[in-house]
């Protein structure tokens, strides 16, 4: 019973095998991709492993405190070189192996030519609550 975050990057992850930008796919290939993603989430709900999935807009900025009584300072949008998160899925699984297996399946979502994208997903375990028995 452990939660993992599967992070999908717009930028910052290594290049996928099937590296064609989405606007160059056919509309049918885009639909097939979207269907794969929603089927994947639906399947995880059925297995009792789904927690959350969200997509993020690419537009964003850095914000920081700028001292008492002053408005926060903003910076951005990010330069091209920066890591950029596209979205995530949170899963609740019995083992690390299962988390990796599911990330592998998600990475196989079809892209250009209907072929798997082989996209690199970042898998991050959640920090848990502390166990009661430690000695």
């Amino acid at each position: 019973m452990a939660k993992y975050l599967l992070l999908k990057h717009y930028r910052g992850a290594p290049a996928p095998v099937n590296d064609v930008p989405m606007e160059k796919w056919t509309p049918e290939e885009i639909s097939a991709h979207m269907r794969y993603m929603s089927d994947f989430a639906a399947r995880l709900e059925k297995t009792g492993e789904f927690v959350d999935a969200q997509a993020l807009a690419p537009e964003g900025m850095f914000v920081r405190y700028d001292g008492e009584g002053r408005p926060p300072v903003t910076d951005g949008p990010f330069p091209e070189t920066k890591d950029l998160i596209a979205g995530w899925m949170v899963i609740d699984v019995d083992s690390r192996e299962r988390a990796l297996e599911l990330a592998g399946e998600l990475s196989a979502a079809p892209g250009a030519g209907g072929e798997p994208i082989h996209e690199w997903l970042e898998v991050r375990p959640f920090l848990t609550a502390p166990p009661t028995v430690t000695e």
Partner: peptide
């Protein structure tokens, strides 16, 4: 266990 109710319902019925 901090998961959606629908997920837990499926886990239990499975």
């Amino acid at each position: 266990y901090l998961v959606p109710e629908a997920t837990m319902a499926q886990r239990i019925s499975r």
